[in-house]
């Protein structure tokens, strides 16, 4: 039996909480963009869901996740098949994928923005990446989000300035489709875990990280959160999980993902 850890960082807590998003996925491509989502998907694949598929973030599918960062010169990755970008689209459109991403805005409908902020669309105040693959991801397969700094700029009042991904907004529902076709899973932040399982797909609190209050989460969210009668504390990592995470991230890049790399249990 693995023992529950008492000394862990908030980043490690988030990795374990985010890994849970992939637990019941079966055999799908798990794509975690960014250090914490990638480690979360890798942890899930190495523990409770070995059926997951994962890429090397370049052009091959792996039977074993790669550690993050510089690897020894004699490192041999466990290639399973070629998986270049054109084939990624074949996978996306088949629906056999679950992506975890970090958008710049997430509105009350679960719509996200990765593109234009403020101003007008012709002349935005701040231009970011662009829509990327978010439109296709959101209509084709499951998606989760990771937010390292939970605040009202990300979880903003109103609708996203530019809607990169479809959410549970009845006004934008394509004809012939149901809101239930949209599949947003977990939202993991530095404060809590949420989903869109509230009434009429309202965002809902699933757990609070150790020492975080409901008020703090609600104050940092620009719209009301559905709160169940019992809100548990986000489960701590086990020693076994921490050891696997350390092996997947030998250069400790996870320490740079959340501001000031705080401990998982607030002092």
């Amino acid at each position: 039996m693995s023992t529950v850890a008492t000394d862990y960082t908030l980043a490690e807590l988030c990795i374990v909480a985010a890994a849970e998003a992939f637990r019941h996925d079966g055999e799908v491509l798990a794509t975690g963009i960014g250090v914490i989502p990638r480690l979360a998907a890798s942890l899930a694949m190495k523990t409770f869901n070995p059926d997951l598929m994962m890429t090397d973030s370049e052009a091959f599918l792996l039977s074993e996740p790669n550690p993050i960062g510089k690897r020894p010169a004699d490192f041999q990755q466990a290639n399973e098949t070629w998986m270049g970008f054109s084939r990624i689209f074949d996978n996306v459109w088949s629906g056999k994928r679950h992506a975890m991403l970090g958008p710049t805005q997430i509105d009350r409908f679960g719509q996200t923005n990765t593109s234009a902020l403020g101003g007008t669309y012709q002349q935005p105040k701040v231009m970011m990446l662009g829509a990327r693959g978010f439109p296709g991801n959101s209509i084709c397969h499951a998606n989760s989000f990771f937010v390292p700094g939970h605040n009202t700029r990300i979880f903003m009042d109103g609708e996203c300035d530019f809607v990169s991904s479809i959410g549970y907004n009845p006004a934008r529902l394509p004809r012939g489709r149901s809101l239930d076709d949209v599949d947003i899973r977990r939202v993991v932040t530095n404060l809590c875990v949420m989903d869109f399982g509230g009434p009429e797909h309202q965002i809902r609190l699933l757990s609070l990280h150790p020492g975080v209050t409901l008020e703090e989460v609600q104050d940092n969210t620009g719209y009301p959160i559905a709160v169940p009668a019992d809100v548990p504390t986000t489960p701590a990592p086990t020693d076994e999980q921490l050891a696997i995470i350390a092996g997947l991230d030998p250069h400790n890049q996870r320490a740079a993902q959340i501001a000031d790399n705080p401990p998982g249990i607030r002092a």
Partner: peptide, 13 residues
Amino acid sequence: PTAVGLGTDVINQ
């Protein structure tokens, strides 16, 4: 034809 883009601003814009 594709489902990709439905419900998003890549269509509206």
